[in-house]
Computed example of a mutant assay.
Amino acid sequence: MQDQPEQKQPPPRWRMSIGEGVILLLNILTAGVSASLGLFAILWGSFREPTQPTGIVVYLLGGSLLLVALGAGLTGLLLLLRQSRLAAWFQWLAALGGALFLGTYLFLSRSSGSLQADLALLAMMLFIIVLFVFSGWFLRRVGDEK
Rank of each mutant, 00 (worst) to 15 (best):
T51C: 11
V33M: 15
M16I: 00
S111M: 00
E6V: 03
V22E: 09
P53F: 11
R82K: 15
G73C: 07
L25C: 10
L131Y: 11
E49N: 14
M1R: 06
M1H: 13
L102N: 09
Q91S: 14
S46K: 05
R48D: 12
G62C: 10
L93D: 04
R85E: 04
M16Q: 00
K8W: 01
A41R: 02
T104P: 02
Q4M: 11
G71H: 06
S17M: 08
L93F: 07
D3L: 09
Y105W: 12
F47S: 13
D118I: 03
L122W: 03
V130P: 07
S17P: 05
Q7I: 13
E145P: 02
A123Q: 04
L115P: 03
R48Y: 09
I128Y: 12
P11S: 10
L74R: 02
P53N: 06
W92V: 12
G97V: 04
K146A: 13
F40H: 05
V130S: 15
E145R: 02
D118H: 06
W14L: 15
A95N: 09
G71E: 15
Y105E: 09
G97N: 05
G143C: 09
E6K: 00
P11Q: 08
L74A: 06
R15V: 06
S114R: 05
S46T: 08
S17L: 01
V68R: 02
G19S: 11
A87E: 12
L121Q: 03
I129Y: 04
W92A: 13
Q9V: 08
L108T: 00
I23W: 01
F90T: 14
N27W: 04
L93N: 00
S135D: 01
Q91N: 07
V33R: 02
D3K: 01
